[in-house]
Design a binder for these strands. Structure first.
Lengths: 394, 394
DNA sequence: AGAAGCTGTGGAAGCGCTTCCATATGGAGA
DNA sequence: TCTCCATATGGAAGCGCTTCCACAGCTTCT
């Protein structure tokens, strides 16, 4: 009946032209209906809508993007998608973007140059905005980002000139130190991340700095011998953990840079027959999902929220709303079962002077899944956070 | 110098026209250089390349997509992005796609109709292919997918007419039963997933069926009282777990539908003061990351590989290579520390006749991070699998 | 009655590419 | 010398939209 090919016979879907022909109107009018432009008579509008339905019409995102010069897409760059913490952040991002019409293009990058492409290649023609998680861009990449005027927000990266969401790592280190000191520990060790100078992964340095300064302030400076900084490979980590725990006079407590590293320590301890926390206290950083399951004491950093806020900031940026240049999220120590009072070792060792009751040290603060986020309950994004977080790991 | 605007002054990047003008050639030639068309003289080619470099030219993906009628994009639909198993599958997908030029658009969907949109709305104009993880499409969605001729592969969904990757859930249930029976258990319980009829989430039914049939075959049919099927909410799960463990004559062993559920059981057991595996054996299904850390015995399903193979199948489909209509991946029982021989309870109970040595039951099969995948070592995707899996959780 | 606004509407131009056809150029063969 | 082909190249058309300008048909004022 119409003069143009009609319907999705060729598997490609019908076009605006088909709809126009079928409704007996011009393409401009169809476009207006599509975009809720007011200047269309009710009668025409409904005729067009009928045609769209009949033809199973779906506008092409691509054509629309080309014409509008906006893609409706947000690029998310995630390094170490293998890390639970990255996943948790991504969850927050998705939750925030879920309510919007934006789609998420995921770039899993790493240090390899090849994979870092999106950072220097992505233009505003490919995505409306860029969200960088955890991976600090190089100087060149930064310059390029600025040159391309790509709206960008960084999460977990401290950056000048680009709005970012961070956590006070120094304070985090301090909190950890304070917790262990408060339990009476004095021989305290540190299990860190190898610092990658090339990319300025400095959260490790900052956590350590805060940790050291607090220890020093308390009169128990961190002994070099009780500190290890290892690479990412499981093998290396395992070796380091064993070293740290296997020495002649091992520390009575260790603060690990991340929960992942703390878990490695836990495994090593179990292999060496060390009881936690009776023989040694171990705490981590992050509060990833697993931490709860193994009862790991840790410095909780709001991973989900960081992603959520990052995405929200980016949306503000895209809408032209002003946003703060930097948001700093708060940290808490979540006390669980892997830290306890220092054992006053006799030479025999096993009978501690202050035996630790079995059920001791259930979380000081209730676990994440039942606690409410910061905001009071209103029907705003805050709810969503609470909502989703409750659903984890079912 | 050129007549067209030049460079990225407006933040939008230069176009093929700018390059053509600067190189003193036509746009056709630039396009040919861009696409490695042979009919370009070396001399011209290098002049064009110089111009591209000078102008920081990046072709627009959108324009290219519109013109080529291919987007270079694969849509991945992931339900329950909160589940570790979904994440693990996604990792596999990303690993497989990483080597290609395809980009990944992530749709986190759930049962809510609103979110399921991509399944019925996505057309071939928006993405070249569709990868569905775990969420079975409704009849209408299936019909629509077929009508749109969208190349699709499903992972963890049994589907007719769409290539899919599955595991033999029935066999999985059998394996679990066999393992527990072999340890001497007879009062065996089941902790399942509420079956959602609407969407035909049938892996739960199949696992249970296999489990039941094996038990029945051994002369110890599953007692209704020892079986629970609960909803996803943490609260519901917690309650169910408590019920199952708190009864008068609780089972001596329980098979949980998933590791996540098994973990809930573990927590409940710890709260009730039950020792695992001395008082009760617990096993799960999946072998997610956490399972290793808490020493959970489980039926391992190759999550990473499922995503990897799914993506590979989709790529084959897009390249026109023929693919099998269904791939079934194998399952293994990974024996760790949460299952043990049945305790021959005296009324006193605590002294088991066969005390379980502390270090007993280290994984029967070495843990995933050190074991090799099925394929022998060649420089093919198999390597990559081994490679990446070794890097998890550092 | 004519001018001046509205309100709807059609459709060309343009977004930045790919593709194809037309054309130019330079031998090789007759 | 002329023809024919292979090799390079330019640029129009077209991908499916949005946007803007032009214009038709009505009112409403003067």
């Amino acid at each position: 009946m119409a003069t143009t090919r009609e319907g999705h016979d060729d598997g490609r879907g019908s076009t605006i032209k088909d709809v126009a022909a079928r409704a007996g109107v011009g393409i401009g009018t169809v476009s207006r209906v599509l975009n809720d432009h007011p200047a269309v008579s009710v009668e025409t509008r409904s005729r067009v809508q009928a045609a769209m339905t009949a033809l199973h019409y779906q506008p092409s995102r691509v054509a629309r993007a080309l014409s509008r010069r906006r893609t409706g897409t947000i690029a998310v760059v995630v390094p170490f998608f293998t890390h639970p913490s990255a996943v948790e952040r991504l969850r927050g991002v998705l939750a925030a973007l879920d309510e919007t019409a934006f789609e998420v293009v995921l770039y899993s990058v790493d240090h390899a140059d090849r994979r870092r492409e999106p950072l220097s290649r992505l233009s505003r023609r490919d995505a409306d905005g860029l969200l960088i998680l955890t991976l600090p861009p190089s100087e060149a990449e930064l310059a390029s980002l600025r040159a391309r005027a790509m709206p960008t927000v960084a999460v977990d990266v401290e950056l000048d000139g680009i709005p970012n969401i961070v956590v006070d790592d120094i304070e985090g280190g301090r909190l950890a130190a304070r917790h262990l000191l408060s339990l009476g520990h004095e021989r305290i060790g540190y299990f860190g991340d190898e610092v990658d100078i090339r990319f300025g992964f400095t959260s490790a340095q900052r956590r350590r700095a805060g940790f050291e300064s607090e220890l020093a302030g308390a009169g128990h400076p961190l002994a070099g011998a009780l500190s290890r900084e290892c690479m990412h490979e499981p093998a290396a980590i395992e070796r380091c953990a064993a070293e740290l725990l296997g020495m002649d006079a091992p520390p009575t407590a260790i603060f690990a840079y991340s929960d992942a590293k703390a878990l490695a320590l836990l495994e090593a301890a179990s292999r060496l027959g060390l009881r936690v926390p009776d023989d040694i206290s171990i705490m981590g950083f992050d509060d990833i999902e697993v931490a709860r399951h193994v009862g790991l004491t840790t410095v909780r950093q709001p991973l989900f929220e960081s992603g959520y806020s990052g995405a929200t900031m980016l949306l503000d940026l895209l809408h032209g709303t002003t946003t703060s240049a930097r948001v700093s999220l708060t940290l808490d120590v979540i006390e669980r079962r892997t830290t306890g009072p220092v054992a006053r070792r006799t030479s025999a060792g096993s009978a501690s002077a202050a035996p630790v009751p079995a059920g001791r040290a259930r979380a000081t603060r209730s676990t994440a899944s039942t606690s409410r986020p910061d905001q009071p309950t209103t029907s705003n994004p805050g709810d969503r956070v609470a909502d989703l977080r409750g659903k984890q790991l079912t």
